[in-house]
Design a protein around this nucleic acid. Structure first.
Length: 276
DNA sequence: CCCCAGTCCTGCGGGC
DNA sequence: TGCCCGCAGGACTGGG
């Protein structure tokens, strides 16, 4: 499930192979599955992107950005099982989009479940879709004051709030659990009831956990889906303290057992002793 | 405002 | 051994 660290790992992995290259062709792959959601049409995309140079490879929240010399920008959203790869893939049957580059290499979008999306935005469209009105700030750029300001005015469970991409953009189910465990906050706590000190812990631990996960190249779960740009596995799954560990002893206190509950129809894992 | 259920989709693992 | 069903949860939508 690519979240911020996994998407950042993909961006860093493809960047040296892709930045500065000219797109000689962009096409849908022949695929027996339903085609992924692409806007505008593939014909329009090919017309606007062919012959263009990729001037920048970046990340916004959970999307990979390929900025072109025309000002247009590809935004690839992997959602659950999407991957960006260079001359590699877990298998060929789930390849979805191919960018042919002027050095003969191929950039691929691979997606098993096909929930991912491809967009080609003009600068105005980019602002409308991914600008500050639609998407919250990057958690790695947020201060405690930013968190306080954005958490006030509404009340809901803090775990649910962390998944709200308008509040903070890039955190998903796995890292929300790990951040709240590191911050020692019960995921069921209401945002209005959090003290300044507790919000400060969330701000600090979010940066620590996300940066650590980036250093480990993200989390490859037991389904093996997530891969880096050359089809290698992440290593952060070995560092998980709570996610997917229901029934196991908490790695921090060593006494309590990790509990699994459901919030907003998603699994939440936490330690009832460490997290209050 | 808040919360919930349903939608897209495929693969896998548990239970029988 | 084989089959079925539930689960995984990204973002979004519509209803209460």
């Amino acid at each position: 499930m690519p979240e911020l660290p996994e998407v950042e790992t993909m961006v860093r992995g493809i960047r040296p192979h892709v930045a500065g290259r000219v797109i000689t062709r962009v096409e849908r792959c022949r695929c027996r599955y339903r085609p992924i959601d692409v806007t505008p049409s593939m014909r329009q995309i090919a017309r606007r992107a062919t012959g263009r140079t990729i001037v920048e490879v970046a990340r916004r929240a959970k999307r990979i950005l390929l900025k072109l010399d025309s000002g247009d920008c590809f935004a690839i959203e992997p959602r659950m099982t999407g991957l960006m790869l260079v001359d590699a893939a877990p298998d060929r049957s789930h390849l979805r989009i191919r960018w042919r580059l002027d050095d003969g290499n191929d950039l691929w979008f691979w997606d098993r479940r096909g929930l991912g999306t491809l967009r080609l935005y003009t600068p105005d469209e980019y602002e409308a879709a991914l600008g500050p009105d639609r998407l919250g700030p990057e958690p790695l750029d947020m201060s405690t004051a930013d968190w306080k300001q954005r958490l006030t005015g509404r009340s809901r469970e803090i775990k649910v709030a962390l998944l709200d991409q308008k509040l903070v953009a890039g955190i998903g189910n796995l890292y929300a659990a790990e951040i709240l465990h590191a911050a020692r906050i019960d995921p069921r706590r209401r945002t209005e009831g959090l003290s300044g000190r507790e919000i400060g812990r969330i701000a600090a631990r979010a940066i620590e956990i996300l940066n650590e996960a980036i250093r480990y190249e993200g989390s490859t779960l037991s389904d093996g889906t997530y891969r880096n740009a050359i089809n290698g596995e992440g290593r952060y799954q070995n560092e998980h303290r709570v996610y997917g560990r229901a029934g196991q002893p908490c790695g921090s206190c060593g006494k309590a057992t990790i509990v699994r509950i459901v919030q907003a129809q998603r699994a939440t894992f936490y330690c009832p002793k460490c997290q209050r």
